[in-house]
Amino acid sequence: MISNQYAMKHLVASAWTFLPMPARGISKPKLRIGGSHVSGGGNMTVDTANRLHTFAVPFTYLTATEFAILTGFRDLTGPHYYTDDNGVTTFNVLLLDLDVTVNLQTRRDCTLTLQQYQ
């Protein structure tokens, strides 16, 4: 089933490409970009420049059409826009990984890993 919420598009593309509905287990941790220094008395000052998401989005039991949508992104090096709320919030992301599993029952699974870059 194609979602109406999860979508990606290439940075120069005009239209969103809706993704299949993800399976359970979406992870969206934040990565801190920054540094720190420790004073003579042991106090730490933390400098944070940014906090970036890493998205890991699993998909299971994909149809051939759905599978093609996802693997289609593999041919583009990106960056892409990514949204998980139908374009209300968008992230600049790089496609880090598209992990594909096709088993003998022609079950198609894959996990999309995206890194927000700024």
Partner: peptide
């Protein structure tokens, strides 16, 4: 300005 992913740099020093 030394910012690293995960925060391992010197920061703004």
């Amino acid at each position: 300005w030394d910012m690293q992913q995960g925060g391992g740099g010197q920061g703004y020093y």
